[in-house]
């Protein structure tokens, strides 16, 4: 018999190192900064939770957070139903389908700042196709000057960029539904709404959860597109958390407050995603369907 050794722990070491360098150490560095006031390399003072307190009392942070939540809610409310409608409208088979899928995937392949650029030009009130057309139609439209216009443009851009993701995920979920389910509903005289609500929705629920999570996380982190499109303006009307953070950390070199901000930002995203996920997935645990003992 072999003596028990602790050698197996060595096997875990690569993973520990990887996680340490990829996540734990950088994060802890930020946490370290967030509790100190740093004047220069030699001079630093421990300030405890002062930066956190200050950040939470900063009206610009609170405004950016509220704006962020409003933005994420709006794009979810638009993109998820729109994505489902588009996915249900796609043909389930046929020669047209691959072409449509590729077309849908195109916006997803465009880099963020290019998307910002495209819309920046597209929506310009003087020469942009969209901007000029809207103005010519008699609406006074200027996304660089009017807050509502800036928001509408920003949301339109995000919807254009990301609805396809929801559509493709939903479509994948829909194609996995066996034909018999539709057939049974047809024989039950189910209406189109009933078919969606009772046949399709329960079966695409989990892909929808993934779609909402992805869009929620991504929209909470949005930076590049509004940066290129509106630069956060007019005023601070489209300045979201990440933009404010960048201006604080890179523009003003406020390392301590920026670190506290980062930690709070991270916690907000974590909290919102966790809240969503647990509230949706909490009630869907059942027994093993292949367990026949319950007879």
């Amino acid at each position: 018999m072999q003596a028990n050794t602790n050698k197996a722990w060595l096997g875990v070491l690569p993973v520990v190192l990887l996680v340490a360098f990829s996540a734990v150490i950088p994060l802890m560095t930020v946490v370290n900064y967030s509790v100190q006031d740093i004047f220069d390399v030699q001079t630093r003072v421990f300030v405890g939770f002062d930066w956190y307190r200050e950040t939470l009392r900063d009206p610009r942070f609170v405004d950016a957070l509220l704006r962020q939540i409003l933005f994420s809610s709006l794009i979810l409310v638009i993109e998820i139903p729109l994505g489902i409608v588009l996915a249900r409208g796609l043909p389930r088979e046929g020669r047209l389908l691959p072409l449509l899928l590729v077309l849908l995937a195109v916006p997803l392949l465009i880099p963020w700042n290019v998307v910002g650029m495209i819309w920046q030009i597209f929506a310009r009130p003087d020469i942009g196709l969209l901007g000029a057309a809207v103005n010519a139609a008699g609406f006074d439209y200027n996304f660089t000057g009017v807050v509502t216009d800036a928001w509408v443009t920003l949301i339109a851009m995000d919807v254009w960029h990301w609805t396809s993701l929801v559509t493709l995920l939903t479509f994948a979920g829909l194609t996995a539904i066996p034909g018999a389910c539709y057939q049974a509903a047809m024989l039950d005289d189910a209406s189109r709404w009933q078919v969606f609500w009772y046949v399709e929705f329960p079966r695409i629920r989990s892909v929808l959860v993934i779609a909402v999570l992805l869009r929620l996380m991504d929209s909470l982190m949005i930076y590049t597109e509004p940066f290129v499109l509106t630069g956060g303006g007019p005023g601070n009307a489209t300045t979201f958390l990440s933009q404010y953070l960048t201006s604080m950390a890179v523009g003003q070199f406020d390392v301590g407050p920026a670190a506290a901000f980062s930690v709070l930002y991270f916690l907000v995203i974590l909290l919102l995603c966790w809240l969503f996920y647990t509230s949706v997935m909490g009630s869907s645990k059942g027994p093993d369907p292949y367990d026949e003992d319950g007879l």
């Binding site: 066996p178 018999a180 389910c181 057939q183 049974a184 024989l187 039950d188 005289d189 189910a190 209406s191 009933q194 609500w197 009772y198 046949v199 929705f201 329960p202 079966r203």
Partner: peptide, 30 residues
Amino acid sequence: RRNVAQVFQFPVLYEGLDVRGNLEFALKNA
């Protein structure tokens, strides 16, 4: 339309409804 009902190879039910809801689904529609 014809009054035909079908039982499939695997159980086809409305997962979101309880057993009663499933059984009375067609009756409600009728």
